[in-house]
């Protein structure tokens, strides 16, 4: 493995994507506020995009497909962030808190 050509091998990108997914899941379990969980969710989106882009660049016959897919993932992530933040603000108005422990009215 030639270190000077490290950026032309798919392995590094795939490992970094796996690391991003793991960090996102860790944050999703560990965070105790809604915004922290949203940020972890964005990390998971990024992991998916990076994985698709790496496989697209090295192993796909048509390199435009993965780029368009990643573009749509970005658009959906932007829409998701808009919706989730408005929900967070509405929750904060009603409960004056966005800590997940205190939002337990439906907890049986």
């Amino acid at each position: 493995m030639n270190l000077l050509r490290a950026y032309e091998q798919a392995d590094i990108y795939l490992v970094v994507a796996a690391f991003l997914l793991a960090a996102g899941v860790y944050g999703l379990i560990r965070r105790r506020t809604l915004i922290g969980m949203l940020i972890s969710g964005e990390l998971i989106f990024s992991a998916a995009s990076l994985n698709i882009m790496a496989l697209n660049c090295f192993y796909a016959p048509d390199p435009t497909v993965g780029q368009i897919f990643a573009l749509f993932v970005m658009g959906l992530a932007a829409a998701e962030v808009a919706i989730v933040l408005s929900i967070i603000i509405a929750v904060y108005r009603n409960y004056h808190s966005i800590k997940t422990r205190e939002l337990s009215e439906l907890n049986g």
Partner: peptide, 23 residues
């Protein structure tokens, strides 16, 4: 992290014979 890395490093990925477009 460990499982996905192991899967992606051990996968037998095959490069395509020819690219259809240049991306």
């Amino acid at each position: 992290c460990w499982g996905l890395s192991r899967l992606s490093l051990q996968g037998q990925w095959t490069a395509p014979a020819a690219k259809v477009t240049d991306g």
